[in-house]
């Protein structure tokens, strides 16, 4: 049971936190930010939803699905998704490191290029964003698995 004030605040704050998380994630290749802090802020937003509502709210209230109440938390649908995300992130990190070897560069070597986007103009596109995406998935998947399972103990 949580008060209406907390729920209303969470509704307002969560989108702002997610926008900051995405902006920190995208600017991470040449400014402060990156996959880790973007992931941590995304976890903060989800945890705010979990604290203000409950563990099943993302599944039942947002996505409109039904959950099985009898199954343990480690086999819960969202937690399964988080664990898959963790594995996917590890795979992306390893693959982005190994991909640099193919053209003959060092392991984990990065490069960048400039692309022209409509509305934005010249944008620097760094290959480090793939590595950051892997780190992001590992952080979000790992931390949310821990919070869901340990929080339900």
């Amino acid at each position: 049971m949580t008060t209406t004030i907390m729920r209303t605040t969470a509704r307002v704050v969560v989108p702002i936190v997610l926008v900051l998380a995405i902006s920190l994630f995208v600017q991470g290749h040449n400014l402060p930010g990156g996959g880790f802090i973007g992931g941590v802020l995304t976890v903060t937003a989800f945890t705010l939803v979990y604290v203000a509502y409950d563990l099943d709210y993302v599944e039942v209230g947002v996505l409109g699905r039904d959950v099985d109440d009898d199954v343990g938390m480690l086999d819960h649908r969202t937690v399964t998704t988080y664990r898959r995300m963790f594995t996917f992130g590890l795979l992306v990190v390893v693959a982005s490191g190994l991909a640099a070897i193919v053209p003959g560069a060092q392991f984990l070597a990065q490069t960048y290029t400039y692309v022209h986007l409509p509305l934005f103009g010249e944008v620097e596109l760094a290959s480090a964003i793939i590595f950051d995406l892997g780190v992001y998935c590992v952080v979000v998947g790992g931390l949310l698995t821990i919070f869901s399972v340990v929080g339900n103990e």
């Binding site: 907390m6 945890t47 604290v51 563990l55 099943d56 109440d69 339900n152």
Partner: peptide, 25 residues
């Protein structure tokens, strides 16, 4: 943001004891 979350979490722990729970039956 993190200070806000931690304050809310501790406040919920002090008042209710459980921070993150499953859906009410």
């Amino acid at each position: 943001i993190i200070a806000f979350l931690s304050t809310v979490t501790v406040a919920k722990y002090v008042t209710e004891g459980d921070i993150i729970t499953r859906r009410d039956e």
